[in-house]
Design a protein around this nucleic acid. Structure first.
Length: 819
RNA sequence: GCCCAGGUGGCGGAAUGGUUUACGCGAGUGACUUAAAAUCACUUGAGAGAAAUCUCAUGCGGGUUCGACUCCCGCCCUGGGCACCA
C-alpha cells in the first residue's frame, strides 16, 4: 500500500466535499437544527493565524460530530472586512482597500478550505459588500428613528502627528499605535448609541443563557451596576440643587462637604455666583489635560478647589457644607458629584489636605479601630454600626440604608437609584473604509435619514481616502457626494461624512447567515425563526466586553422593534464559549517584530492539514493560553502515520475471535471521545484516540474491519481527510463524514477484572486483581491474605476500620492494641 | 486596590476526594542499516538499595478526612480583566 501522502488525499477530499455540498445547511429539514457559530475573521494581510486554526478546528470538530449525530447543522463563515488595518495597508501599497480586501479574503478562504473546515460556503458573507451593509445601515437608521442614536460632543483620542482620531484600542499606553506620539484629547461631535438604555436587561438576561461563568462575570463587571440613592442638596441663595449618587447613604450624617467634577454643569450655570471663578476655571482646564495621565497613578495627591461663597445643605443634618471641585470625581459617572465624608479614603485625604471639617458616623466592628476612627487618625471605609445619626443610631449599615432613603424620600430629597459604569457607544469614525452613516444634515430640518429605498448608501469609489489634516472624515473632501438635497424639504444639505466602527457589521452578522442573499429584508422571518438563536458561539475572550455585548444589545433592539421574530427570545446566543490564545514558542506572544509567527501554510505543506488539526486539538486545554511547539507537531503526524499503517495492513480481511479487552476499550473510547468533544476537552479526546490506536497495534492480529470502522468514525471529526481516505480504501460505502456517530454499549464498558488498590492506614501497600463487582467481605479477605499486607500490620495491631470503594480500593485502618 | 483563571516531571499536560505524573514531546539504551534518517522495542519524577523494596515530591504554611493535586483557612507567585465608579 502507498505511503501516507496528505497533500494528495487532502486536496482530493476537499474537492469532493465542497463540490457535493455535504456541509450545506438545509433551510427545510426533518432533522433538528443546530447553529454553530465562530467569530468571522478580520481578513488581514497576514493570513490565517494558528490561533484561528485552533478555534475553528475545535468548532469544526463539533460541527462534524453534530452532523454525524443527525443534526441539520448551520456552520457558516464570512468576513468582517471593514477597518483600519486594511485601510492603512492600502494607503501604504497604493491599492484600493476593496482590492486589498478581495486579495485577503481569497487567501483566507483558500487557507480555510485547505484545512478542511466544514463551513457552508454557500452562505459566505462580507461586511464590505453593499448588499450586506445595506442592512447595517438600515439597522442604524432604526436606531436613529427610535431615538437611540444621537450626536454629542465628546473628547476623542487625537494624534497630533497623524492628525487622526483614534479608537481606544488604537491607543497603547497613552501613545498612538502607529507613530508613538502622545495622544491628546480633542472635543469632537460624534454619533453615539444609547446602549446604556439596555444596561439592566444586558445584565438580567445573562441568567437565561449558557455562557461561561467568567464571560458573564466580565460582562457584569463591565456594565458595572451599583444600587444606591440619589440625594438632592439644596444650594444656599440659589433656587437650585445639586444631585449626588451614593451607594453609602448610611454615611450621610458624616457628610461635611460636597465635591463636583471639574466639568460639572453647575459651574457653567452659576459661575457668576462663585467668588473665585477664575481659579475654578483654571483648575478645570488643567484637569482636562491631566486626567488620563493621573488615572494610571492612583497614589497621586488629591487636589481640589473650593467654590467660594457656595454652600450646600445636607438634607440629613440640615447643616451647611462647603462645595469643592476635584478631578477624582468623574463627570461621566453617577451625577458627576459626590457628598464627601470621613468614611471614604479619597474624601478623607482631601479633607486632611485642605483642613475641611470631618465627622464620623460609622463604628467599625474591630474595637482597635474604633478609637482611631473617632480621632480621625485613620479612615474607616467599611460597613459598621451607625452613631451620630439620629434615629438610625445603633443600626448596621445595610439595615440603615433603605430606611434613610425612605426617610429622606419623605422629605423629597432622596430616591433609590441604580447607576452603571457602562457608557454610551461612540459610533463614528473619521475614516474611509467603513459603512457610510446614512444621514443628511439640513439647516432647516436637522438630521434626516437617507430614505430606506436609497439604501445602500454606497461608499464612493475614490482615489483619495487618506485621513484629512483636520480630522474630518476623508469623505468630507468629496464635494459631489457630500452636497445633496434634504430628503424632507429638498433644500441644499450635506451628508454625514463619518463612517461606522468595525463593530457595526459584526453586530448582526449571525442573523444574515440565516438568509444571506435576501434583498428585501435583513433576513426572512421564517428562516430566522428556524435557525435562531445560535446554539453555540465560540470566540475570543477579548471580545467579551465589546463585540459580544454590542451584538447582544443590537439583537435586543431588533427584537424590541419586531425586526426579528419574538419567538426567538431576547438573546441571540444560547451558549458562549471561549478559546485560549496560541502563543509563540517559549510562551511569548506571536508577532512579526519578534519573528516568531507560525504560518499555518508552512505546517500544512510540511505535515498536512490533518496533522495541524490534530496537533492544535492535542496541544493543551482549549480554554487556556498555550505556547506553540513545532516539535510537538511531529507527534501528531506520527499518530496519523500509525493509523495509516495499521489500516493498510490489517484491512485485508483479518477476522479473528474477539478479544473482550479490545471491545471494552473500543466502547470506552467511543464514550470518552464523544463526551470530551461536548465538553471541549479536545486534548484528552485525541489522547484517548491515541491510546486506542496503540492498543489496536498491539492486538493487530485480532482486529476486525468493524473495529477499524469505529476508529475511523470517531477520528473523522479531528482528521477528516485521513478518515475519508481510509474509509474508502477499506471499501466502506459513502462518505465517512456522512455516517452515523457510533453508539457505545454500556454493558461493554465494565471490565471483568479490575485492579484494586489495597491501602493500610491510607498508604498504598498492594494492588490485587479482583472480579468486577466483588463485595467488601470478599475483598477484605483477599487483602488480608496478601503477604505484603500482612507485613504492614504489626502483631500488636488490629484492623479497626475498613474503608471500601467498590472496584477501586480498600483501606485497612489499624489500631495499636497495646496502647 | 478589586474581580477572574492558574501554579503537577526536562517541556505541553493528565487525574476534581481513592494507584500522582495518562497521552505526546524531548532524552537515553538496544534492534535494523556500511552509516545516518525513519521505524520498532525498552527505560525515563527525585533520593537510597545488588535487588525485592522503601522514603520523599502536585507554589508555601496550617486544617478537615481512613485517605487531599482535588475541600476549607491564611500567604506567595504567574497570566487575564477592571481600575479615582462615590
Amino acid at each position: 500500500m502507498a505511503k501516507y501522502n496528505p497533500k494528495k488525499i487532502e486536496a482530493k477530499w476537499q474537492e469532493k466535499w465542497y463540490d457535493s455540498n455535504v456541509f450545506k445547511a438545509q433551510n427545510r429539514s426533518k432533522k433538528k437544527k443546530f447553529y454553530l457559530l465562530v467569530e468571522f475573521p478580520y481578513p488581514s494581510g497576514d493570513g490565517l493565524h494558528v490561533g484561528h486554526c485552533r478555534s475553528y478546528t475545535a468548532i469544526d470538530v463539533i460541527a462534524r460530530k453534530k452532523r454525524m449525530e443527525g443534526f441539520n447543522v448551520l456552520f457558516p463563515i464570512g468576513w468582517d472586512a471593514f477597518g483600519l488595518p486594511t485601510e492603512n495597508y492600502a494607503i501604504k501599497k497604493g491599492a484600493h482597500p476593496s482590492v486589498v480586501t478581495k486579495n485577503n479574503t481569497d487567501n483566507f478562504r483558500r487557507q480555510m478550505k485547505e484545512l478542511g473546515f466544514s463551513f457552508d460556503w454557500s452562505r459566505e458573507i462580507n461586511t464590505t459588500d453593499p448588499k450586506y451593509y445595506k442592512w447595517t445601515q438600515w439597522i442604524f437608521l432604526q436606531l436613529f428613528k427610535n431615538g437611540l442614536a444621537y450626536k454629542d460632543k465628546i473628547a476623542i483620542n487625537w494624534c497630533p502627528t497623524c492628525k487622526i482620531g483614534l479608537a481606544n484600542e488604537e491607543v497603547i499606553s497613552g501613545k498612538c499605535e502607529r507613530c508613538g506620539t502622545k495622544v491628546e484629547k480633542k472635543e469632537k461631535e460624534q454619533w453615539m448609541i444609547k446602549i446604556t438604555k439596555y444596561a439592566d436587561r444586558l445584565i438580567k438576561d445573562l441568567d437565561n443563557v449558557n455562557f461561561l461563568e467568567k464571560i458573564k462575570i466580565q460582562q457584569k463587571d463591565w456594565i458595572g451596576e451599583s444600587r444606591g440613592a440619589l440625594i438632592k442638596f439644596s444650594i444656599g441663595g440659589i433656587d437650585d440643587n445639586i444631585e449626588v449618587f451614593t451607594t453609602r447613604i448610611d454615611t450621610i450624617f458624616s457628610g461635611t462637604f460636597l465635591i463636583l467634577s471639574p466639568g460639572h454643569s453647575f459651574i457653567d450655570k452659576y459661575g457668576s455666583k462663585i467668588e473665585n471663578i477664575d481659579e475654578v476655571l483654571k483648575y478645570r482646564e488643567d484637569s482636562k489635560i491631566a486626567t488620563d495621565i493621573n488615572r494610571t497613578n492612583i497614589d497621586k495627591d488629591v487636589t481640589g478647589v473650593q467654590l467660594k461663597r457656595i454652600t450646600a445643605r445636607n438634607p440629613a443634618t440640615n447643616e451647611e457644607m462647603p462645595v469643592w471641585i476635584a478631578d477624582f470625581v468623574l463627570e461621566q459617572y453617577g451625577t458627576g458629584a459626590i457628598f464627601a465624608d470621613a468614611h471614604d479614603k479619597r474624601d478623607f485625604k482631601m479633607a486632611k489636605k485642605y483642613s475641611i471639617p470631618l465627622r464620623t458616623s460609622i463604628k467599625p466592628d474591630d474595637e482597635l479601630l474604633v478609637q482611631k476612627t473617632k480621632n480621625l487618625e485613620e479612615c474607616f471605609d467599611g460597613e459598621g454600626i451607625l452613631y451620630n445619626s439620629m434615629q438610625f443610631d445603633g443600626m448596621k449599615s445595610a439595615v440603615a440604608r433603605p430606611l434613610i432613603v425612605a426617610w429622606l424620600a419623605s422629605k423629597s430629597s432622596a430616591q433609590q437609584k441604580i447607576s452603571y459604569k457602562l457608557r454610551d457607544w461612540v459610533f463614528s469614525r473619521q475614516h474611509y473604509w467603513g459603512e457610510p452613516i446614512p444621514l443628511i444634515f439640513c439647516a432647516q430640518c436637522g438630521w434626516q435619514p437617507v430614505p430606506e429605498k436609497d439604501l445602500p448608501l454606497e461608499l464612493p469609489k475614490v482615489k483619495k481616502y487618506k485621513p484629512t489634516e483636520t480630522g474630518e472624515s476623508p469623505l468630507s473632501a468629496i464635494k459631489k457626494w457630500v452636497n445633496v438635497k434634504c430628503p424632507k424639504c429638498k433644500s441644499p444639505a450635506k451628508r454625514e461624512t463619518d463612517t461606522m466602527p468595525n463593530w457595526a457589521g459584526s453586530n448582526w452578522y449571525y442573523l444574515r447567515y440565516c438568509d444571506p442573499k435576501n434583498n428585501r429584508k435583513l433576513a426572512d422571518a421564517k428562516l430566522l425563526k428556524y435557525w435562531m438563536p445560535v446554539d453555540w458561539y465560540n470566540g475570543g475572550m477579548e471580545h467579551t466586553t465589546l463585540h459580544l455585548l454590542y451584538s447582544r444589545f443590537i439583537f435586543k433592539f431588533l427584537w424590541d422593534i419586531g425586526a426579528v421574530p419574538k419567538s426567538i427570545g431576547s438573546e441571540p446566543y444560547k451558549k458562549r464559549t471561549s478559546h485560549g490564545m496560541v502563543l509563540g514558542e517559549k510562551g511569548i506572544k506571536m508577532s512579526k517584530s519578534k519573528g516568531n509567527v507560525i504560518n499555518p501554510d508552512t505546517i500544512v505543506k510540511q505535515y498536512g492539514a490533518d496533522t495541524l488539526r490534530i496537533y492544535e486539538m492535542f496541544m493543551g486545554p482549549f480554554d487556556q493560553m498555550i505556547p506553540w511547539d513545532t516539535k510537538g507537531v511531529v507527534g501528531a503526524r506520527r499518530f496519523l502515520e500509525k493509523i495509516w499503517k495499521l489500516c493498510s495492513s490489517s484491512l485485508r480481511g483479518a477476522t479473528a475471535t474477539k478479544q473482550s479487552n479490545l471491545e471494552i476499550s473500543i466502547n470506552k473510547t467511543i464514550k470518552k471521545v464523544g463526551e470530551d468533544i461536548e465538553e471541549m476537552k479536545f486534548n484528552t479526546a485525541v489522547s484517548s484516540l491515541m491510546i486506542l490506536t496503540n492498543e489496536f497495534i498491539k492486538n493487530k492480529d485480532f482486529l476486525t474491519k468493524d473495529d477499524v470502522k469505529i476508529l475511523l468514525l470517531i477520528l473523522s471529526p479531528f482528521a477528516p481527510h485521513l478518515a475519508e481516505e481510509l474509509w474508502r480504501l477499506a471499501g466502506f460505502k459513502g462518505l465517512c463524514c456522512e455516517q452515523k456517530w457510533p453508539k457505545y454499549n454500556v454493558k461493554l464498558i465494565e471490565e471483568e477484572k479490575v485492579l484494586l488498590i489495597v491501602q493500610v492506614n491510607g498508604k498504598v501497600r498492594d494492588k490485587i486483581e479482583v472480579d468486577f463487582g466483588i463485595d467488601q467481605k470478599q475483598t477484605e479477605n483477599l487483602a488480608l491474605s496478601s503477604n505484603k499486607i500482612k507485613n504492614w500490620i504489626a502483631d500488636a495491631e488490629e484492623v479497626e476500620k475498613v474503608v471500601f470503594v467498590q472496584n477501586k480500593l480498600i483501606n485497612l485502618v489499624t489500631i495499636d492494641k497495646t496502647k
